[in-house]
Design a binder for these strands. Structure first.
Lengths: 129, 129
DNA sequence: ATTGTACTACGAAAACATTCGTACATGAGT
DNA sequence: ACTCATGTACGAATGTTTTCGTAGTACAAT
């Protein structure tokens, strides 16, 4: 799991979500998790996963006649990259603005808000310019 | 300024940023703000802005021989849309996770953190499930 | 009115992402 | 070994975004 600056496309990201939730999955698993043939053709998912393999986004190994895939990008670093990029390109560099926007529309639970506040207090405790 | 669910592409977003910062700007202004010919061909920006006009993302009016553009989408609603989408597709619906991620890597200033905390306290004051 | 400069219009190429049909490979069951 | 079911491989069509060359237009200056 590394932090390479590989940027997944939208569809690739959907697939990565499945891989992050499960350790080693087949194309069939992914295909079904994404809603089966109603949502995407089987070979579409297969092709995507082959491309992702070429790009190094995922790795795979044979298991009998099928391939089992796993993500080569961590969910954490990918999320971090995407958030950082959004802060940069959409919020002019202000993480705080993004935070306000994220909290603004969406009802988060009391528990979540508390968790955030605890985290904040920890941050404010340290010395941040 | 409306909230239509028009989703700008990446390049369109860059252009919109300029439009949000300035009230009425020419293609030339945008082109220069984005780094001049070194970064994008002039006609590339022009074409993009024409397309954006067709899509209704921006409007324009003649002023002498040039066109002055302004955004038809508000920065607020666009930001909100993008944040919501990111929460959905990348953070499995948890705004709190996004917030933690946004605060995690990035050093926000004391003032910003304070502002966030004040906002949080206001939210926690109300009743949120 | 003619020319020059600064702009707009637009089609088409290039680059990238997604979808799909079809052919080939593997292994299980007989 | 043959066949069937279930995978994989891969080229090509489609769709979308970005880039660019070239042609046309408008205004200012002469």
């Amino acid at each position: 799991m590394s932090d390479k600056p590989l940027k997944p496309t939208e569809k690739e990201l959907e697939i990565l979500q499945i891989l992050w939730e499960n350790d080693a999955v087949s194309v069939k698993d992914v295909h079904e998790s994404l809603g089966g043939e109603a949502m995407n053709g089987y070979t579409t998912i297969l092709k995507l996963m082959q491309i992702m393999t070429e790009k190094g986004l995922v790795s795979r190994e044979r298991s009998g006649k099928l391939h089992l895939y796993k993500a080569e990008l961590s969910q954490e670093s990918t999320r971090q990259q995407m958030v950082d990029k959004m802060i940069d390109t959409v919020f002019q560099g202000s993480a705080a603005q993004l935070v306000l926007s994220a909290l603004g529309n969406n009802r988060s639970s009391k528990e979540e808000l508390l968790e955030i506040r605890k985290y904040l207090e920890k941050l404010e405790g340290g010395s941040h310019e």
